[in-house]
Amino acid sequence: MGLVKPGSRTSPLSRLDVRPKLALVGVVTVIAFVWESPLLGGGLAFLALLACLASGVRLGYLRNSLFLLLPFALLILITQGLFADEVIRMRTGQPTLTPWLTVPERVWWIGGASMSVEGMVYGLNIIFKMVTMTLLVPLLVFTTDADAMVLGMVKIRIPYKIAFVLASTLRFFPLLFADIQAITEAQRLRGLAPESMGPVKRARVYARLAVPLILGVIVKSQMLDVVLQSKAFSGSSHRTYLHESRLRPGDVALLVALALALVAVLILYWRFGIGRFGGPI
């Protein structure tokens, strides 16, 4: 699919059953939501990044994904810096926050508002949550065979039709990206140089991608529909399976470890405040 290195199918994570991987995604998401400490949240995001790299997810893909998050991250940082005072006072009990920047009075609507250091740190914590969850997607998708994903989802009682549609959608994305690339290339081969255009003109040119792209998607999905019908696909869960989804010792060990980790995180949070905003860590 071009987004993962060829070795990714042999990475430790790719050898696991999809169920412990889904559990991993679930547990890490819960932990990311529970922890408000930017230090722990950052650590978790860093670990997710390392896991992606170890699983062969392309650096370029990660860079692009994180780059797309950048405007949202900036927005979060600014809004939390400006408007999170109440929440922070409630969580830390601090009567006053440390100002970092005060907006001049003459600025409309937010004039006089002050960006607090604590608010920005709190914003950082939200950004790390967002980064962690963004990194979990390729970690699951790129290390799991689509057929194995269907099988695993059926095992956890997701109806076959829904599991098939989900897996097919994931498989469709690389095709979509390939089409976008082919059309962009075709435009450049028609003498267009979007890089030397202004933003409005460039947007107008890119908007024209839609015509061949939508047409291509319609044709492909209709063709796929005909192919599936011809292969007796009806979406019924009443079917047999070539492969069996069995949990191996490694899968069970990961499930146990995840359960223990979740319990430990929750106990540490509620009992000792570890992971709380303004807590010991």
Binding site: K231, A232, F233, R239, T240, Y241, L242, E244
Partner: peptide
């Protein structure tokens, strides 16, 4: 297609 037609494994 064989799975869809419930052919045994």
């Amino acid at each position: 297609a064989l799975e869809n037609l419930c052919v045994p494994r």
